[in-house]
C-alpha cells in the first residue's frame, strides 16, 4: 500500500459530516461568563462580611482555638488560591502560538505543577495537620470521649481519601508532563 492510498482513504471519510449548530454553544458560553462574574461578586462580598464579622466579635484576640482554626482555614484558602491561579495560567497560554511554542509553555506549566506537588503541597499538608492537632487538643478537653474518637476516626479516614486523590492527580500530571516531553 502506498501513502497516497492512505491519504485517499482518509479524505474520503466523513463526507457527510453534519455541521452542528454553534448558536447553543455561544449562548451557553455567555451564560457561563455571566455566572462566573456573579460568583466572583458573591465570593468577594462573603469575604468582606467574614472579615468585618471577625473584627466585630474581636476574634483576633489570641487563643489556641483561633490559632488552630486559622491554620486550617489558611491552608484551605492558600490551596484554593493555588488551584485558581494554576487554572488561570493554563487558560492564559496563547492558543495562537505555534505548536512547538505552545508545547514549551505547557511543559513549563506542568513543571511548575510538579514543583508545587513536591514542595508547597506537602508543607501545606503538614501545617494543616498541625492545625488539626491543636484543635484536637481542645476537643479532647471540651467534648465527650465518644464524640472525640468519632472526630479523630472520621478525620483519619477523610485524610487518607484526600491523600489518595491528591496522589492520583499528581501522578496523572506527571504522566502528562512525560508525554509532552517525549512528544
Amino acid at each position: 500500500m502506498e501513502f497516497k492510498d492512505i491519504q485517499n482513504t482518509w479524505q474520503q471519510q466523513s463526507e457527510q459530516t453534519n455541521i452542528p449548530d454553534f448558536t447553543p454553544t455561544q449562548q451557553k458560553l455567555q451564560k457561563i461568563r455571566k455566572e462566573q462574574r456573579i460568583t466572583q461578586f458573591i465570593l468577594g462580598i462573603t469575604g468582606i462580611v467574614l472579615i468585618a464579622f471577625f473584627f466585630y466579635i474581636s476574634a483576633y484576640k489570641f487563643s489556641g482555638t483561633l490559632l488552630g482554626m486559622s491554620l486550617l482555614i489558611g491552608v484551605i484558602i492558600i490551596r484554593v488560591w493555588i488551584e485558581v491561579k494554576s487554572r488561570q495560567t493554563l487558560r492564559k497560554i496563547n492558543v495562537l502560538l505555534s505548536l512547538e511554542d505552545f508545547k514549551a509553555q505547557l511543559i513549563s506549566y506542568y513543571e511548575n505543577r510538579k514543583k508545587l506537588a513536591f514542595t508547597t503541597i506537602p508543607i501545606l499538608l503538614i501545617v494543616y495537620n498541625i492545625g488539626v492537632g491543636i484543635m484536637m487538643y481542645y476537643f479532647y478537653q471540651y467534648i465527650s470521649r465518644g464524640f472525640f474518637y468519632y472526630i479523630v476516626i472520621s478525620y483519619a479516614v477523610s485524610f487518607v481519601v484526600l491523600f489518595y486523590f491528591i496522589r492520583k492527580q499528581v501522578l496523572q500530571e506527571l504522566k502528562t508532563l512525560k508525554s509532552l516531553q517525549e512528544a
Binding site: 492512505i6 491519504q7 482518509w10 479524505q11 502560538l97 505555534s98 505548536l99 512547538e100 511554542d101 508545547k103 508525554s179 509532552l180 517525549e182 512528544a183
Partner: peptide, 27 residues
C-alpha cells in the same frame, strides 16, 4: 505515533503543504 508526529501526519493527510505545516508547528 507520538503527539507531535500524530499532529504532523494528520495535517499531511488533510493535504496541507509542508510550508504551511512548518508555519503551524513552528518547525
Amino acid at each position: 505515533l507520538k503527539e507531535t508526529e500524530r499532529i504532523v501526519i494528520l495535517l499531511v493527510l488533510e493535504g496541507l503543504a509542508q510550508k504551511e505545516i512548518a508555519d503551524i508547528t513552528g518547525h
